[in-house]
């Protein structure tokens, strides 16, 4: 039986308000979290419009975190704290104020930094990533070393196009995993990687 009541008392940090981040923010807000802390230094551009939820003619050039914060405050009434800056070592203390961190970043380097800071600060991070029609998710506990293993010697893949429905799928699964973690029902996913392949319409759960 699904029980998301635990979310009502929780504060969740979403790092990255692009493709994944936008749908994660939307999903968590509508699921009824107590508070969201969102962070992104980027602005919307025309190239975002194929997949980023609040990108559009009226938001081009505006900071992504500010646009989402405004929308959530005006329409859903969820408590939301906005950081219009990129995540880095100098502002990593933002992690301390949350119960869970959502990795919605878009580069290997930034993800590894976020993961490292979450480990240091004792926070669980839900990793999600997507390229074209494939992606993966992982629950990263502070003691896990799986994100390092996952991305060892990896670099970002340039020149690809990610489709909206793929972004939405990974984001939805991230919100689902977050709900499971916060309600204490995620044990079976610890130490695993969830591999999503929308080209084959398949989801695999494998040991890391």
């Amino acid at each position: 039986m699904l029980d998301y009541s635990a979310l009502k008392e929780k504060t969740i940090l979403v790092v990255g308000c692009g493709g994944l981040g936008g749908y994660v923010i939307n999903g968590l807000a509508r699921a009824g979290v107590k508070k969201l802390i969102i962070m992104d230094g980027d602005v919307f551009s025309v190239s975002n419009m194929n997949r980023q939820l609040l990108s559009g003619n009226k938001t081009i050039g505006r900071n992504k975190a500010e646009v989402y914060a405004e929308f959530i405050k005006e329409n859903l009434g969820i408590d939301i704290e906005c950081h219009s800056e990129f995540f880095g070592e100098t502002n990593a203390s933002v992690i301390d104020d949350c119960d869970l961190v959502m990795d919605c970043l878009d580069s290997v380097k930034d993800r590894l930094l976020l993961s490292s800071e979450c480990s240091k600060r004792g926070k669980i991070m839900i990793h999600g990533a997507i390229d074209e029609e494939q992606g993966q998710l992982m629950i990263c506990r502070p003691e896990d070393k799986n994100i390092g293993r996952l991305f060892r010697n990896s670099t970002d893949f340039e020149g690809h196009k990610t489709v909206c429905f793929a972004v939405e799928t990974i984001a939805a699964l991230q919100v689902s995993l977050a709900s499971k973690v916060l309600s204490g029902n995620a044990d079976e996913y610890f130490g695993k990687i969830v591999v999503v392949d929308l080209e084959s319409t398949s989801v695999l759960i494998l040991n890391m």
Binding site: G16, D106, A129, I130, Q134, D156, H160, T162, L206
Partner: peptide
């Protein structure tokens, strides 16, 4: 066999 190299986009 499966060979997986992780996505990094967001």
């Amino acid at each position: 066999l499966m060979f997986l190299s992780p996505s990094s986009g967001g």
